[in-house]
Design a protein around this nucleic acid. Sequence first.
DNA 1: GTGCCAGTTCAAGTCGACTTGAGGTCAAGA
DNA 2: TCTTGACCTCAAGTCGACTTGAACTGGCAC
Lengths: 145, 145
Amino acid sequence: MRDLDIVEVARRSGVPASTLRFYEEKGLITSIGRRGLRRLFDPGVLERLALIALGRTAGFSLDEIALMIAPDGRPRIDRQRLTAKAEELDATIRDLCAIRDGLRHAAACRAPSHMECPTFRSILQAAASGARGARKKRAPLPPRG
Amino acid sequence: MRDLDIVEVARRSGVPASTLRFYEEKGLITSIGRRGLRRLFDPGVLERLALIALGRTAGFSLDEIALMIAPDGRPRIDRQRLTAKAEELDATIRDLCAIRDGLRHAAACRAPSHMECPTFRSILQAAASGARGARKKRAPLPPRG
DNA sequence: GTGCCAGTTCAAGTCGACTTGAGGTCAAGA
DNA sequence: TCTTGACCTCAAGTCGACTTGAACTGGCAC
């Protein structure tokens, strides 16, 4: 495949040109030259962008991702880090499942007020104790389609 | 239970005083008076804060939550909204499960490079097509314990 | 009564990931 | 050749949820 200009990369990857420039500035991707003003990229940038998207969805920050992607574009990944992140995701998933079930219950429940429904109250309890716990920042989820 | 001053509410709820002031300013909670300078709150504020925490964990913004909590503190919740949010959470959960499995696989996989592992590549594919899809903002997950 | 500390107000700052705006430049079409 | 339109750079702005800083004040201990 021939080199791609920024417009082409944007089109194929779904990542806006402004974001591509931003990523380049951050060192997440590299352009290999210009055609006129336009940046040219190696087609491999598409795979790299996919890797970045993966990392973002997993909850890594751009800075973390930058550390994990080797300059040559191949992932340079610390297995411990991956495992740790997987466990973090597990916790997140458990929470979200509980909340989702709570929402479904609240939507279906016929108690006169949610506050009088034991199920809802117990969900509240869980949420409250979550807030009371250690306040560690969890990476936000990125936009999704 | 007697009225609680802001320090007490902070202690019991785990929510910093600065955040309580911020929430009051936003109209999410209401103080019922002062003792000297200190705000006093009805003990019901604790339940309300739990409700707010629940909403945040579910991915609602503070503004959305403000709309859902009636002035009297009892939830005023649109069942459709709840169901919609539950479905959104389902999608999120599915994504996160896939990513988590991918991370676990990547951590365990013995392929010389992740890029040569078909499983990893297929995960990449999924991430990439996610990025390509409609770019709707998903609410970030709040901090958790 | 007077000093101190922990509360108060209000404005401004922070953080991450981008986006937007103003003004500049280049390649291609008329 | 000249125009046009798209990309360029660089700085600044945005968004959400708070936090922080400076300056102020009220109740309580001494």
